[in-house]
Design a protein around this nucleic acid. Structure first.
Length: 440
DNA sequence: ACAAATGATTCAAT
DNA sequence: ATTGAATCATTTGT
């Protein structure tokens, strides 16, 4: 190898010599920068190579000695500090551009979620946001408390793993940082390293570690999500409503068949009446009622034939109750002015209001009442009472000829998009079919 | 075990 | 935000 260097050196020497010698030839004197530059570089490389090749223990010792000498030079500290300053100044300009620390939105999201999920929140107290929310949603339901505790146990497990891992990362980060700092401090004796540079280095390390931590957070989030979805699925274990509750709901449904869309108030009222708890999922009892009505509407519309019996039953039922109520009312205040009991009040639902009730009656009577025009006055109600009573008495054979035909749905009935249930409806479709949809 | 009933959820439309 | 429709998952009845 030594030979190589020597050869190179020799070569460069030759070329140079050659130039000078051959100057007189037709070629222009190669005094162009390129030429000499290239040659110079070659020479430098040659020198470096040579130096490297000739490194020995002895030379190393020599270098050490030289270094020591330099370190001990009286001007060294001053020079060193100047170098540090220069470096810092140049470094600042570079750093300034890229030193922003924008809070990573994704990391923020993860953090927020972990906090919300109670993973990274307060250690114990069991009151992690999600857990309390779930507990609140569970209401008094003792049936799913087991699952709930199961969920909580798994969540704490996740939390423990998360915390231990996080701690491990933190520790490793600190260790590494101190190591690097020591190293830099050590080196700062021989080369200019400003404290700011160390700081920057620490920042870089921390960022790297935090990116690793983000992965941990991400996987933790995934785990929580999976657990949560499982728990949610578990909560889907539905409990059928009580007989009474379905009765009440059905009563409302069939007595408002022309427009089975209970208002918010009505929903709440129904929920209260049915003593529906929030033990299910959802946020409110209203939702449960809405669910029920949604399902009911769909399923009713889908197969009206199937529900006709039920419709008859509830129509009769409401008829009876209404009859009683109205009868009592009439009894109480005999000659009353037509105080149109038109929907309105929140309590109206308990006593089926005029329009639907009227329709129910009418349907009950079959064709007998066809001619009757709307008119929600006392007179007509009084009439209907008679019919209803007579009808309810002889309810037995109601199944034979469906009395409760869903006219309200058919024509322009309250609810939109009725799928022409005529095919399913009773064959005894009222010829006149008065469709007295007096709902407001 | 099977099918029907049923409460809840999801998704698109409005 | 509410509703309809489809669908899921469970309960209930047989």
């Amino acid at each position: 190898m030594e030979e190589q260097a020597r050869i190179m050196q020799a070569l460069s020497g030759v070329t140079l010599a050659g130039h000078s010698v051959q100057g007189g030839m037709g070629l222009p004197p190669p005094h162009g920068h390129e030429g000499t530059d290239g040659d110079g570089r070659k020479q430098d490389i040659g020198d470096i190579l040579h130096q490297i090749m000739t490194i020995t223990d002895q030379s190393l010792d020599e270098a050490q000695a030289k270094k020591h000498g330099l370190n001990c030079h009286r001007m060294k500290p001053a020079l060193f500090s100047v170098l540090c300053e220069i470096k810092e100044k140049t470094g600042l300009s570079i750093r300034g551009a890229q030193e922003q620390d924008p809070p990573d939105p994704q990391l923020m999201r993860l953090d927020n979620m972990l906090l919300a999920e109670g993973v990274s929140g307060p250690e114990k107290g069991g009151g992690s946001a999600a857990a309390t929310a779930a507990a609140a949603a569970a209401g008094g339901g003792a049936d799913n408390s087991i699952e709930h505790s199961d969920y909580r146990a798994k969540l704490t497990q996740i939390r423990q793993i998360y915390h231990t891992e996080l701690e491990k990362y933190e520790q490793a980060c600190n260790e590494f940082t101190t190591h690097v700092m020591n190293l830099l401090r050590e080196q700062s004796r021989t080369r200019p390293i400003s404290p700011k540079e160390i700081e920057r280095m620490v920042g870089i390390i921390h960022r790297k570690f935090s990116s690793i931590q983000m992965q941990l957070k991400q996987s933790t989030c995934e785990a929580v999500m999976i657990l949560r979805s499982r728990f949610l699925d578990a909560r889907r274990k539905r409990r059928n409503f009580s007989k009474q509750a379905t009765e009440i709901l059905n009563e409302y449904f069939y007595s408002h068949l022309s427009n089975p869309y209970p208002s918010e108030e009505a929903k709440e009222e129904l929920a209260k009446k049915c003593s529906i708890t929030v033990s299910q999922v959802s946020d409110s009892t209203k939702h449960i009622v809405s669910n029920w009505f949604g399902n009911k509407r769909i399923r009713y519309k889908k197969n009206i034939g199937k529900f006709q019996e039920e419709a008859n039953l509830y129509a009769a039922k409401t008829a009876v109750t209404a009859t009683h109520a109205v009868a009592a009312a009439i009894h109480n205040s005999q000659a009353n002015s037509p105080t149109t009991p038109n929907s309105g009040s929140s309590a109206s639902f308990s006593l089926p209001n005029s329009g639907d009730m009227f329709m129910s009656m009418q349907s009950l009577n079959g064709a007998s009442y066809q001619g009757a025009q709307v008119g929600t006055n006392v007179q007509s109600q009084g009439d209907t009472i008679h019919h209803a009573i007579s009808q309810t008495v002889g309810y037995n054979d109601g199944l034979r000829h469906p009395m409760y035909s869903p006219h309200s749905l058919n024509g322009n009935g309250g609810w939109h998009g009725a799928p022409t249930p005529s095919s399913v409806t009773s064959p005894n479709e009222g010829p006149g079919s008065v469709h007295s949809d007096t709902s407001n």
